[in-house]
Design a protein around this nucleic acid. Structure first.
Length: 436
RNA sequence: CGGGGAGUAGCGCAGUCUGGUAGCGCACUACACUGGGGGUGUAGGGGUCGCAGGUUCAAAUCCUGUCUCUCCGACCA
């Protein structure tokens, strides 16, 4: 993509409303623009990152045996009356009426709807287990939206729902999601710690929050050093027993500051790590909480009709964009992990008016693009300093700077955004390095 | 929801107390210079001062109402 054609409105100055790093940087890097409190438009580069995160989440859900569906954003209130949550949910639910005066709502989550879909079709234990998920916009009318997309009112969420005959089977479904989450966050370039959690309004007995570590995270977290030794990229054969893995990850101490009690902490100070984190995922097993009131039942092998055992599993996809930036930035801007970077390489023509320089850049752009590398090519006729600053701000993993000075000696400069390491290479070497 | 703060050009702000031709920096347009870390100059364009009432010869400024945004706190993917 050429910068001269790309819609990438970066800002030199920081908008006054943005307090935290990710919000500031997303606005400055031209990723989002605010529509109303907690509601944002996603501009091309922001959307590109959002889609990449979404895709990784999707791949791991699919790999874990979940199947993608897509439920609507607008739901009829009836189902919520049936589950008893229409009154319980309170002002966080955006309630609307259609032209016929029918009560509707913009979905804050989808337990009721998925349960309704399930109960209408599934009648036998032979059809279990099932895990259905979707990635859809949700709306929760937060009292105080803040931190940009980290706590917006409208947000993109992956939510999966598992259905099993027994609680034991439900635990297996839970474990599959647990492992999928470990892998998902690791692939996104994050360090995530599962923590035992309150179940809140979703309800249920078994629940873990996944907290990604970021120095500027919203809450303080405490966890056993032992987590550092665990490998989140769990490889497990289909149908394998995941319980030992889950046990290992849940056997070590981890708690947010709300729960942590320094005086009674089971981990001695030498092994306790204190950090800050952001909640990006939350998984629940809640058994019959919705299946019972909503009559989502199947016939078991013995002929008895029983409520199905359910769990739900959320990932804050849009929040992850902010969380990744919180975990990956420096004073100059964003430092994207390669897996979610909007482009891998930022190619800078340092002297757009110089024909040789432009020819060299055009060629590099063509070669890299042909090799399947996503390149943002700054072909504009602006000062070199502005280009470097802008590239640092948007945080592409590699910068490829091409100017007359280097070309005279047959070299271009490749900079690693994260380490800051700069290499002078021939164009051929640069291509080889960037396509490796 | 409790307590603060703010709405003036795309962004950041001054002007409001003490009413009198709406300003500054950045960004933008044109031209020239410059050219490896947000460069320089000259000349420009852009604002019903959040909205609605009121007071006044005259309102960004005073009064009333209203909307929105935002910060801290309590709650959440």
């Amino acid at each position: 993509m050429r910068s001269s054609r790309y819609f990438l409105p970066t800002l030199k100055e920081t908008p006054a409303d943005a307090q935290i790093a990710s919000h500031r940087l997303m606005l400055r890097a031209g990723m989002i623009r605010q529509g109303a409190a907690g509601i944002y438009s996603w501009l091309p580069m922001g959307l590109k990152v959002l889609r990449k995160i979404e895709q990784i989440v999707r791949e791991e859900q699919d790999a874990a045996g979940a199947q993608e569906v897509l439920m609507p954003t607008i739901q009829a209130a009836d189902l919520w009356v049936e589950s008893g949550r229409y009154d319980d949910y309170g002002d966080e639910m955006l309630r609307i009426e259609d032209r016929h005066g029918r009560k509707m709502l913009y979905g804050p989550t989808n337990e009721e709807m998925i349960t309704d879909i399930f109960r209408k079709e599934i009648k036998s234990y032979r059809d279990l287990p099932k895990n259905l998920y979707h990635i859809q916009w949700k709306f929760r009318d937060e009292r105080r939206p803040r931190f940009g997309v980290m706590r917006g009112r409208e947000f993109l969420m992956k939510d999966a729902y598992s259905f099993d005959l027994t609680a034991e089977d439900g635990q297996k479904s839970y474990n599959a999601m647990f492992v999928a989450y470990l892998r998902t966050f690791a692939r996104l370039g994050l360090k995530a710690i599962p923590m035992r959690a309150d179940t809140g309004p979703i309800g249920g007995d078994l629940s873990h929050e996944f907290i990604v570590l970021a120095e500027t995270g919203e809450s303080e977290v405490f966890f056993d050093k032992a987590f550092d030794g665990l490998d989140p990229m769990v490889e497990a054969a289909a149908g394998a027993d995941l319980q030992p893995i889950v046990d290992e990850w849940t056997s070590h101490y981890a708690a947010t500051d709300e729960i942590h009690d320094a005086d009674n902490c089971p981990v001695d100070a030498g092994n306790l790590i204190t950090g800050r984190g952001i909640e990006v995922g939350h998984i629940f097993f809640f058994g019959e909480k919705y299946s019972k009131p909503m009559n989502a039942t199947v016939q078991g092998p013995d002929g008895d009709t029983v409520p199905v055992q359910m769990g739900s599993y959320g990932v804050g996809v849009s929040r992850l964009v902010g969380a990744i930036i919180e975990a990956c930035h420096d004073e100059n801007g964003i430092v994207w992990p390669e897996a979610v970077a909007p482009f891998k390489v930022g190619l800078m023509n340092l002297r757009a008016k110089d024909e040789e320089c432009t020819a060299a850049c055009d060629k590099l752009y063509q070669q890299l693009t042909a090799a399947g590398i996503e390149v943002l090519y700054d072909d504009t006729d602006t000062g070199a300093g502005a280009k470097f600053a802008n590239m640092d701000l948007i945080g592409l993993p590699y910068q490829l700077a091409v100017g007359p000075r280097g070309l005279k000696n047959g070299v271009v400069e490749v900079k690693d955004r994260k380490s800051g390491e700069k290499l002078e290479l021939t164009p051929e070497e640069a291509i080889a390095k960037l396509t490796a």
